[in-house]
Nucleic acid binder design. Structure first.
Lengths: 245, 245
DNA sequence: AAGTGGTCTAGACCACATT
DNA sequence: ATGTGGTCTAGACCACTTT
């Protein structure tokens, strides 16, 4: 009765979706699978690894393998619109709308030459000076997002934007004060698997993709004033965009 | 000199990003790695599997393991849905792919009871009747998206929407004709690893996430008239959203 | 026919967590 | 001290692709 790793994984997957193993529950371990299915230990290990790379489970070495939980943060890119006009449809994901405590850490600010892609996005000359603001966001103590903003140095060098603490209203309020209020935004995003460094930065477990977002902020006369590259733990977010035809 | 699978993968990854192995190029195979690093075959196999689950490579059994190529489709949500586009007789989808051949296949239309989440999103009673339109999109002969739309059956049952071919302008033009023109849209999306069925449906190689999008279309008086669930091959898309503060 | 990736067994050692 | 996942070796068979 040869049972392959795939078949064992299928079985466990079915038992997860049937509710036999709830989110957070401990799955049968390698020794148990070896015993029950009569396979080698490595086959059992690979079966669990399949579930892990599918994002259905995570392992806690020395303790066990557990069913993953999904409690996403709801990120509404343009809130102003959603409140009034989109009242009647309801969110598909049962994301708790209650805002969770968000911490910002590891803030770094420095000036450097713009990377090619940033110069292009900001409509600057190659290697033009930019102010770079980098930081990480934590929810419930876990890192969920890494963000790096690029702003034209000649525009913001004299403002509080070059300080770690940008003051009330943040970067956008400071931009508004110098007559460069962001009005229009473009976000380009894609999802992919993380590199090992990114995986470490966001403390990702195997099987978790990332969402890479590039947001360009433009003034009312279409001058790009900020380019923000965000890297999100995909398992931690539901993204919402509202728009009108 | 024990070289772990991880280290071999690191080495290959570095050589990929250095340009030694270009997209589409064939990587050293298992036998070569066994020879060069002096490891067991399974270790070499796992090293390559690491790159595959990271989305950096894919295997062509019997032939070799290759560096993955990334040629995304640009999907601009707002532009696609601008009134000019879909009221002037063009398909919603035609707007973004420009020079690539797009096919729609496997169209299915049927009436059924709304699943709970769809009833909620459409603001209908539980188990209210809905028209379901399901189809897959192919680019260059490869499936890139699966979409399933839910519309209130009482609203659209008498229209061409219940036909596989909805006519010029598509579903939205037909809705406009019955005084239910979609004006406001909400897209909620998240990225995750696919289930094995989804992986098959979209012919995904290992290491490719999917993007799951729920789009709710509302009329100007905030009536939800369509809920569209889309499942995208994340490696095939860049998504763009434009909005104003 | 030869080469490739895919998977399996059986046994081994390690680091870590829990008891 | 015991149990857990993580990883490795060495050898085997299979299905498939390429020559």
């Amino acid at each position: 009765m040869p049972e392959t790793a795939r078949q064992i994984a299928d079985d466990l997957r079915a038992r997860i979706s049937s509710g036999e193993f709830r989110p957070g529950a401990r799955l049968p371990g390698e020794p148990k699978l070896v015993q029950q299915y009569g396979v080698a230990k490595m086959t059992a290990s690979n079966a669990l690894k399949l579930l892990i790379t599918e994002g259905l489970a995570y392992s806690h070495p020395g303790s066990g393998t557990y069913v993953r939980e999904f409690q996403p943060i709801h990120r509404a890119a343009n809130k102003r619109l959603s409140a009034a006009q989109w009242s009647s449809g309801q969110s598909v994901w049962a994301a708790d709308t209650a805002d969770r405590s968000v911490e910002v850490r590891d803030i770094e600010v420095y000036e450097t030459e713009a990377p090619r892609w940033a110069a292009k996005g900001l409509n600057l000359a190659e290697q033009a000076p930019v102010i770079v603001r980098s930081r990480r966001f934590f929810v419930d103590g876990k890192p969920v997002q890494q963000a790096t903003s690029y702003l034209p140095a000649d525009l913001v060098r004299e403002t509080q934007i070059v300080q770690p603490d940008t003051g009330p209203g943040g970067v956008y309020a400071r931009l508004a004060e110098i007559g460069a209020a962001p009005e229009n935004f473009t976000e380009e995003l894609r999802a992919r698997m993380p590199s090992s460094e990114e995986s470490e930065q966001l403390a990702l477990t195997a099987g978790t993709p990332v969402v890479e977002i590039y947001r360009t902020a433009l003034t009312s006369d279409h001058r790009p004033v900020e380019l923000n590259r965000m890297l999100l733990n995909a398992g931690a977010y539901v993204l919402q965009y509202d728009f009108t035809s």
